[in-house]
Nucleic acid binder design. Sequence first.
DNA 1: CGCCGAGTTGAACTGAATCAAGAAACGTGG
DNA 2: CCACGTTTCTTGATTCAGTTCAACTCGGCG
Lengths: 190, 190
Amino acid sequence: MEAFFSTIEKLIVLDSASRQAFAAIMQYHEFPKGHLLVKPGTVCHSIFFIEEGLTRTYYEKDGKDITDWLSPENSFACSIVSFITRRPDRRGIEALEPTRVWTIHYNDLETLYTTHHSIERMGRLIVSSGLVQLQMRFDDLHFATAAERYATMMKQTPSLLQRTPLHIIASYLGITQETLSRIRAQHILL
Amino acid sequence: MEAFFSTIEKLIVLDSASRQAFAAIMQYHEFPKGHLLVKPGTVCHSIFFIEEGLTRTYYEKDGKDITDWLSPENSFACSIVSFITRRPDRRGIEALEPTRVWTIHYNDLETLYTTHHSIERMGRLIVSSGLVQLQMRFDDLHFATAAERYATMMKQTPSLLQRTPLHIIASYLGITQETLSRIRAQHILL
DNA sequence: CGCCGAGTTGAACTGAATCAAGAAACGTGG
DNA sequence: CCACGTTTCTTGATTCAGTTCAACTCGGCG
């Protein structure tokens, strides 16, 4: 659980009352590789803090499997749209490795938001940082070529490239597996 | 200013103390068509609530002008990444029509966040709703064709299509003006 | 009138998808 | 420890959506 607090400490340092309140609502879980943390087409009721392992958020479109987001250790996994809007979403979350998580339930979090101003602030800062991350990924997708996107990922999260099956990386980048394989072959030659 | 409160009322109803505190920090401005609300390459210090008119958030990439976001009346314009990270960003904001705005300054907002829990909550909810909007646009860009993206826009914000020059819509959708022109021609035939 | 910006249309080109086949790595049970 | 199927990745040939470049139309306006 320390890992969680030291991760969000980059955004905000919580007083000990808030920390304790938070610690009380987090639940520890372990999931095997392949386990579904959130089933596609359901409401996502929790945020998962990944202590160890790797998950992907994904959905189906026209029979194709599309990976939306990757969450390695010390990051969050959540079907954001569903969690915020409280509606079912096609997105599911799957463990790509044996994964240990701290689960934060929506209702518990709402309660803490109301009772602790500092946790409400933490929530705002986490969502803000999520927005910045998504915006940067959006920019990448908006007007960068496949090779540029791969290069960005190489630079920012090289370790993910080694741990994650190619077809998943490919759809994460918005390209096909074959194209990614070719781009990679090019890279090695340089 | 009523327009502002009734817009955010969809997210949260503020008590009158918070409303007054908020009203005290908002500044009214009018800008002519073509005016730069935020200059590219600078830090964005304000959120703009568009009471009337239309702005675009844009940037240059490889000499091309790319429109990132469109903000019509009763919505917000902001160079989000810069505003949150407090760093300069290539993004600028330009008025596409004569525009009337309520400006909310970063420092003032920070003060209110600290003094009013309900405004901190409002901030979290606004950012959350921005995140959902961006996520939906991201999905569209991730694995939809140009024609699908146009269709989405036709459905969701048809009025924007009529008010905005074609080359701006095109880069907003991530395609060229020529392609958009052809897609549009197809649509008329159906 | 002639110019100018906005939009359309055409033809050639290209990056990436698709379809198809095979190679390499991996795990599992005999 | 090997044989087997399965998953993962690569490579090639073809096709296609969308870009690029260029010319042209149309409506407004000094």
